[in-house]
Amino acid sequence: MGILSFGDGGWGDEMLLGALMTISVAVASFAFGLVLGVGGASLKLSRLAPVRVLGDAYTTIIRGIPDLLIIYLLFFGGNGAVMSVARLFGYTQYIELNAFTVGVFALGVISGAYSTEVIRGAVLAVPTGQIEAAKAAGMNRLLIFRRIMVPQVARFALPGLGNVWQLTLKDTSLISVIGLVEIMRTASVASGSTREPFTFYLLAALLYMLLASFSNRGFNAAERWANRGVRRA
C-alpha cells in the first residue's frame, strides 16, 4: 500500500487534494447552475412567446448535445470569445482562462439546463389559488415571490435538485480532459507513473461513490427539514 501513502512516496495526499478540487468544482458549478436555472425557469414561464422560445432553446440544445462537446467548445473557443469581447472594450492583451473557470462555466451551463426544468416544474406545482389569495390579501409581487413562492418552490424542487447535484458531481470527471487536476486527472497521472492504473481508477471510483453517498445523505436531511411542517398520508 506504499503507493497510496501520504507524503513524498505515495499518492494518498494528491488523491485527497484531487477530491477537494472535485468538490470545489462541483459546488461552484451547481451554484452557478442554480442561478441559471432560476433565470431559465423565468424565461420558460414568461408570458411573452419569444422569451419562452429562448428558454426552450437553452434547455433543448444543452440537454441534446454531449456534455463533453460543450466542455471542448468552451475550452477551445472560450479564450477567443472572451478576447473578442474584451477587444470591444479596448483591451487587446492576450487573455487565458484557466481550466477551473472554463470547467465551472461549462458544468454550470449544463447543470443549469437541468435545474431549469426542475425549478419550472416546482413553480408550476404551487397552486394558483394561493397566488390569488395572496393578491386578494393585498400582497405586492415581490412579497408574493418572497413569502409564497420561494419557500414552496424550494421544497418542491429539492428532490429534483438532488438528482442534478449527483449528475454535476459525476460530470466533474469530464473536466479532467481539459487538464484540471481533480480526482480523475490525479488518478491518470498516478497510474502513468506507478503503472498501476487499476488501483488508481478503482480508488477514484471509490472516492466518487463516497462523495455521492455523503451528499445523498445531506439532501435527504435537507428534504426532511424542508418538509418538517407537511402532513403526510
Partner: peptide, 11 residues
Amino acid sequence: RSTPLLVQIFL
C-alpha cells in the same frame, strides 16, 4: 450509478 462513466471506461 454512483460513479462517472469516464471512470468506468478508464477502469
